[in-house]
């Protein structure tokens, strides 16, 4: 088993493997998105409290989940990379960051769109929104650090360290923001705690899976680009491009 893992951790084999996987994940993402959107707009019933506007949560909630989850995955790959010096894990971490930032942004954006009819304001200093905003700052910081460091090896490890610091901090930040929010009596009206309609839940889960597959497909695609870029002097890449 261990041998197998090392086998796939080599960029050359991973490049081949990921090339085969991308279409699968890409198409599943597309199909699931279509199904998910259909359910969210036509099947799921209108919410008796929030009307039609609630439907944005079908995008908002999966995006928010992904934004946090991708950060954890990045931290995981960063830690693996630092511990075992595997080049591929750093590349995975790098490939995930833009998607993570994108989902964070989408979550914020849709949150604002939802907030306007619900709260009467585009932006409310709600605990979750604020944490999400800080998460976006973290993503931006990491990507800025990568952009500023020319040497890829140094960039990899510096970025991984920063991601780890961030990952340790995220729960503390979330907790402190929540604390701050309750003290300041924010104007948030939480969505009512009624049990969710089955179709709603199904729509949300399908959208979440779509987001998953999309992330995997895009991350793999970026990793492939990174691999080719980094290994352009190695034998197998030269053989691949021919000539």
């Amino acid at each position: 088993m261990a041998i197998n893992l090392y086998y796939y951790a080599s960029p050359a084999t991973f490049y081949q493997l990921s090339g085969k996987l991308i279409p699968w994940f890409g198409w599943s993402a597309a199909i699931l998105t279509l199904i998910g959107l259909y359910i969210s707009f036509f099947v799921a019933p209108t919410d008796f409290q929030q009307g039609e506007a609630y439907r944005i949560i079908f995008i908002h909630v999966p995006a928010a989940w992904m934004s946090m989850f991708i950060y954890l995955v990045m931290a995981f790959w960063g830690a693996i990379g630092l511990a075992f010096k595997t080049r591929l894990s750093f590349m995975m971490s790098r490939a995930l960051a833009p998607t993570g930032a994108l989902f964070t942004f989408v979550a914020l954006w849709t949150g604002a769109l939802w907030g306007k009819p619900m709260w009467g304001a585009w932006w409310v200093w709600d605990a979750r929104l604020t944490s999400e905003l800080i998460l976006l700052f973290l993503y931006i910081g990491i990507m800025a650090l990568w952009a500023a460091i020319d040497d890829p090896q140094r960039g990899d490890r510096a970025g991984a360290l920063l991601t780890l610091v961030g990952a340790i901090n995220v729960p503390i930040i979330y907790f402190s923001v929540k604390w701050w929010n309750t003290l300041h009596q924010g104007a948030s009206i939480k969505p009512s705690g009624t049990s969710m309609h089955e179709a709603m839940l199904a729509g949300m889960l399908i959208m979440a899976f779509a987001a998953w597959f999309y992330t995997i497909a895009v991350a793999l695609y970026r990793v492939r680009t990174l691999i080719i870029e980094r290994e352009r002097n190695s034998e197998w890449v030269k053989a691949l491009t021919g000539k």
Binding site: I140, G141, A148, W179
Partner: peptide, 27 residues
């Protein structure tokens, strides 16, 4: 330490560290 010797390290430092300062500010 992370931004040591980089171009525009001052701004970068702000970008990296300010979000981490949030809990301290709040409490």
């Amino acid at each position: 330490a992370l931004t040591l010797g980089l171009r525009g390290s001052g701004v970068l430092l702000t970008l990296l560290i300010l979000p981490l300062y949030v809990p301290v500010l709040i409490f």
